[in-house]
Design a protein around this nucleic acid. Structure first.
Lengths: 352, 352
DNA sequence: TTGTAGGCGTTATCAG
DNA sequence: CTGATAACGCCTACAA
C-alpha cells in the first residue's frame, strides 16, 4: 500500500508538505497543493489508520458494547449509531456481552488498546462501567450510556422515557375498565425495568386500585420468563384481567401462556407490551405496545459522542427519548366490566 | 497507559526481553520470565493493538460487511462470527452496505487501512468483491464470502444448500396434493435467490406439473414485495393453490395479502417460507419454512478465516450448510384435491 | 540468554 | 510557506 513517502517522492515535495496538504495544518501554495492532491487521487492513497492513531493517540474507532445483537431490540440501536458514526468518518467495533459483566470488562480492557475515540455502551447486569469510564475519559474518549444506566452513572446518557411510557400504557388499560392489573417486569436491577414498573405502579395508585404483591412478577426479558410468570398469575384467585409486560419478548410469552391455559386474549385477558418490535404487528392478536425508537436511541448516542469528540466538555447530558402508544388488538374491555360499562369504555376507546 | 518500556524499567530488564517473554520468541530464564510476568500482571499491561499492528502489518481485527443488521436474518450470522472470533482474540468491525455496492466499496477501502487479518462479507448487489479480495489476499488477509456469492467468486465461501432446501420444500407442497404452485423469488441476480428458484423448478418439473411464466414472480426480499406480488398472483385465473416464498420476509407479505384478499391460509392458499426466522413461529398461521442456521453460517466463516490466518493456504473452500424443514400450519391439502384424495394426502402428512 | 537499534506510517515541532 | 526530524509503542534481526 502506498504511503505518504511515496506521495512526497512522486509529487517532488517533502513528507511534511504532504501531511500539511492532507490535514490543512499549514497553508501550502496552490500549485503545490494541487500537485500533491493529484498524486493522492491517482494513486488512490488512503492514510493508515494505525499509524495515524498511534501518533495522535486517538483512532476513528468507536467501541459499541451491547448485550446481544440477536435480541431483536438492539439491531436498530446499532444501526442508528453506525449510520451517524460512519457518515462522520468513524467505524464501529461491535462487542456482545450476554449481560455478563466480566465479559463486558474484558471488552472494555481490550478496546482501550485501540485508542477509540469513544464508547457507546448498553451496560450489562451489575456493570462497573462507572469506574471504567473514568479511565476512558482520562484518555480523552467519550463514553455514552444507552437504554439503561449502571449504578452511580453520572456521564452522558440516552434513555427512553420508560416511566411515562409505562404510565400511559397502564392508564390506557385502566380506562378500558380493568381493575385487576398485573405486571411482569424485567430484572429490577436494570434501571429501565425499574422505571417501567414505577410508571405502572403510579398509574395503578392514582386510579385507587389495589395491587396485591403477587400481581407483581419479576423475570428475565424473554419469552420463557413471560410464559412461566403468566401461568402463575392465571392460577391466582382472582386472576388479573390485564397483564402489562416489561417488554415485547415477555409479552410474547404472555400471549402463548394465555392460549395454552385455554383462555383468549383480549377477550379474557388483555396484554400490553413495551418496545413495539416489528413482531408486535404479527402476533395473534396483534400486540398493543409502547413504542420506542431504537434507531433514534443509537443515533442520539452517536451524536452526543461526536460532540464530545469535537471538543464539547460541558456537563453530562441526559437525553430522554419520548415514547408513543401503539394500540392494536391485545387490549379490550374486560368481560366483567363489559355489561354495565361497555358503552362508556367503548366511547373512550373510539376517541383514540 | 503503561507500555513495554515501563515494564522493562520496573522489572529491570531490557525492552527486548519483555517482548520475548510476551511473545515467546526466545527462551528467557525462568526467574526473569516470572519477574516480567509479575510486573505485567500487577500493572495490568495490555499491548497496544495499534503499535503491534503497525509493526506486524496485521491487526487482530476482522472486518464484517453485511447488508443491514436490521434485517432479522443477519444478527445471528454476526453473532456466530463474533463468538468464534472473540474467543480467538479477534475483534469485529461491523459495516452495513444497504446492498449498495458503492457503499461496500467505500467500506472495503477504508477497512484496508486497519490492516485487518481478514474479512467476512455478505456481498451487496452487483458487488465487485472479486477484484477487491485480490488485493486483500495479496496483503495476507483472508476473505470469506457468506450466504450469496458475487459474480466470478473463486475464494472461500459458506452458503446454505438453497437448492436442495427449496427442492424439498416444494416436494412437500406437491405431496400435499398441490398442482398449481407459484413462486415469489428474491432478486435473481443474487445467487441464493437463483438457487432457491432452481430447487423449486426442479421439484415442479420432476412432478410433471405445469409452470406458467406468470407463476414465477421476482421481487425484493421483503414484506412489501411479497404482498404486492401475491395480490397479482391471486388475481390470475386460475390462481395458484400454493405459494413458495423466497424467504420468510416475503412470506410475511404473502400471508398479509392473502388475508386482505379475503382468503384463508392454509385452507385456500398454502404458503412456504425460507430461513425459519423466529417470527415463523408467531405468524398466523404459523409459517412452514426451510430452516438454515445463520449462527452456523457466521461461525463457519470465522472458522475458515482463522484457519487462513493460521497459515492454511490450500485451495478455496466451499462449505455448504444443510437445511431442514420446519413444518407448521401454513401448508395444507388444497381444497380442490381435498375430496378425492384427502385420505392419501393426510396419510403422507402424518408420516412426517 | 539477554540487550540494542532500526523501522512500521503518521503527525507535530521547529528551523530555515 | 516548506522541509527535516523526532517521537508514538511494538517487534525482530542481529550483536554481545
Amino acid at each position: 500500500m502506498a504511503n505518504m513517502k511515496d506521495i512526497a517522492r512522486i509529487a517532488e515535495v517533502s513528507l511534511g508538505t504532504v501531511s500539511h496538504v492532507l490535514n490543512g495544518t499549514a497553508g501550502v501554495r496552490e500549485p503545490v497543493r494541487r500537485r500533491v492532491l493529484e498524486v493522492v487521487r491517482s494513486i488512490g492513497y488512503q492514510p493508515s489508520q494505525l499509524a495515524r492513531g498511534l501518533r495522535r493517540v486517538q483512532t476513528n474507532v468507536i467501541g459499541m458494547i451491547i448485550p446481544d445483537i440477536t435480541n431483536p431490540f438492539f439491531p436498530a440501536v446499532v444501526r442508528g449509531a453506525e449510520d451517524l458514526a460512519f457518515s462522520n468518518g468513524y467505524r464501529l467495533i461491535l462487542c456482545n456481552t450476554d449481560n455478563d459483566h466480566s465479559k463486558e470488562l474484558a471488552h472494555l480492557n481490550e478496546l482501550r488498546t485501540f485508542l477509540p475515540a469513544g464508547l457507546i455502551v448498553i451496560p450489562s447486569n451489575f456493570s462497573d462501567l462507572t469506574a471504567q469510564a473514568q479511565s476512558y475519559r482520562a484518555a480523552g474518549a467519550g463514553v455514552v450510556c444507552i437504554d439503561r444506566l449502571p449504578k452511580g452513572w453520572d456521564g452522558d446518557s440516552v434513555t427512553a422515557n420508560n416511566q411515562s411510557g409505562a404510565y400511559r400504557a397502564t392508564q390506557h388499560l385502566i380506562k378500558m375498565g380493568h381493575k385487576r392489573l398485573a405486571v411482569i417486569t424485567g430484572p429490577l436491577h436494570l434501571t429501565n425495568a425499574e422505571e417501567r414498573l414505577n410508571g405502572f405502579k403510579q398509574a395503578v395508585e392514582e386510579a385507587g386500585l389495589e395491587l396485591p404483591p403477587e400481581y407483581v412478577q419479576e423475570t428475565t426479558f424473554d419469552k420463557q420468563g413471560g410464559a412461566s410468570k403468566t401461568k402463575l398469575l392465571l392460577r391466582l384467585i382472582p386472576p388479573p384481567t390485564a397483564i402489562s409486560a416489561g417488554n415485547d419478548m415477555i409479552a410474547l410469552g404472555v400471549l402463548t401462556a394465555i392460549r395454552e391455559a385455554g383462555l383468549r386474549c383480549p377477550d379474557e385477558v388483555s396484554v400490553m407490551g413495551f418496545d413495539d418490535l416489528d413482531i408486535a404487528e404479527i402476533t395473534n392478536p396483534a400486540l398493543s405496545s409502547v413504542s420506542q425508537s431504537g434507531y433514534q436511541l443509537g443515533m442520539t448516542a452517536a451524536r452526543i459522542l461526536l460532540e464530545r469528540i469535537a471538543g464539547d466538555s460541558g456537563p453530562a447530558k441526559h437525553v430522554v427519548i419520548e415514547t408513543s402508544m401503539k394500540i392494536r388488538d391485545s387490549v379490550a374491555v374486560p368481560v366483567l366490566a363489559a355489561s354495565p360499562r361497555s358503552a362508556r369504555a367503548t366511547k373512550i376507546k373510539s376517541k383514540r
